[in-house]
Write a protein that binds this DNA or RNA. Structure first.
Lengths: 252, 252
DNA sequence: TAAATGACTTGATCCTTGTCATGTTTTTCA
DNA sequence: TGAAAAACATGACAAGGATCAAGTCATTTA
């Protein structure tokens, strides 16, 4: 089932070599010829709409996916029917890495808004990476980076207070938007308060109260999904738990 | 700096093909010849003693390490001087995967007791994996599995109560000991209460109280580091938050 | 356009778990 | 071997954040 014919114009438009996301998606080290070969196995499908699933837990795994526009939430159902949000993914980010282990998707991925993705058939990527040491190296680094990011999240959830969590969350988006050439201090969040809370291990009410409090303290301006960060340095202080005003004792 | 000559007897004794851990360490799919080639790049060093570091955060990365006996704690220092425990590792488990991303160790690893490891020079492993598709495949799966495991931990820290965390912790060891041919219900924990608490995002006192409570309720018998799990089914109930007695309302 | 539904906010209260304090036991090491 | 230092246990108390309840605002749908 190939989409290449159907969306050939799309293919040209978003070919890897012209893609503005290439520095994120192929972070360094591939020669133009390598990019060409990689490009040849990538499929671009029609965009997903808000609420559409890219895949669901239990689906057979065959492709990694790179978000090219929009945003995606990954989550797993947990025992008691609820869900655990695992991450929010922006253009240039790769999802599905956790599915390699057993050829099955262990989590679900859903579009938070209109979203386009590139699909990278994994078995072909694997074959190609055998032939291209630089691609293989890239893949190892990419997987390793994912591990490192999850580790950071562990620290966040294990030890940080509610406000440290929300500040970290906001600055993560700030940095990621900045990397992509957007404003680091004025952006829209595509997920609900409920999803933020779920992701950060907090109740919706706590998230809501924190937004209000941060606003009252002049740290940010928030209007529904529209966030403007007004005092980045202070937010960074909060993240490190060294904010002078609100906490003077160190955490364990 | 090779250790092969010095510890040649050790080499013979623990050669991969004879190693009882091979099913864990090389989970399937390698031919005997492949194992032979892999074996040829692996170094075995002298054992580490309790408190010795295998590596520290910031060290240059060159080798993955497989624990062959003993146990290891990985941790990162966090902002305020304390540490965040990232994991406890048993024989057959691989550590250092997070260091591939930038050729530096981002965390530290310390022996919790007398511990032996195999070192696998990563650049050689990488070259070898280019030549051996099955090894490459194995590596991808391994990295992916690590991601999956961290994801589970995220759910634990994000949503679970103190007792669910400790029960999960105990059952994780139960299962891992069982896999290694030891009793799943009678074992020694090599780490302190403090380290358990740090890992689970709980205060030492909470861990201590929970051990006492679990014992009072007949779930286990504990004497310092010696733990005997007396009611595995009930512990599994607790993990799933479905234990009928202690909690009847579902968690968010 | 109105009604209904869902998202968000805010307040009051409760509970789990962290913090502090103290005592006991074990381990370490001079 | 004995003293010092960890490790562990337990009680009292406090606080951060969850839960419950109610109301406002936005968005969807009839």
């Amino acid at each position: 089932m190939t989409n290449r014919k159907v969306v050939s114009f799309e293919n040209i438009k978003v070919a890897c070599k012209n893609c503005s996301l290439s520095t994120l998606c192929l972070p360094m080290g591939l020669t133009p010829e390598d990019v060409e070969r990689l490009d040849s196995i990538i499929k671009r499908g029609r965009p997903y709409h808000r609420g559409d699933h890219l895949y669901r837990g239990g689906d057979k795994f065959h492709s990694l996916r790179v978000i090219t526009s929009g945003s995606v939430k990954t989550y797993t159902p947990n025992e008691d029917g609820g869900e655990q949000v695992l991450g929010f993914h922006l253009p240039g980010e790769l999802i599905g890495l956790d599915a390699i282990q057993d050829d099955n998707h262990n989590c679900s991925a859903v579009a938070l808004e209109t979203t386009a993705v590139c699909e990278v058939p994994f078995s072909q990527l694997e074959s190609l990476s055998s032939l291209m040491p630089s691609l293989q190296h890239q893949m190892y680094r990419l997987l390793s980076r994912e591990i490192g990011q999850e580790t950071e999240m562990l620290t966040l959830l294990g030890k940080k207070s509610a406000e440290e969590r929300l500040a970290t969350f906001l600055l993560s988006f700030s940095e990621r938007f900045k990397q992509r050439g957007f404003s680091p201090s004025d952006f829209f969040l595509s997920m609900s308060r409920h999803e933020i809370g779920n992701y950060l291990g907090l109740a919706v009410e706590t998230v809501s109260r924190l937004f209000t409090r941060f606003q009252d303290e002049g740290l940010l301006q928030v209007e529904r999904k529209h966030v403007q960060l007004l005092d980045l340095p202070r937010l960074y202080d909060i993240v490190q738990g060294t904010d002078s005003i609100r906490s003077n004792q160190s955490r364990v």
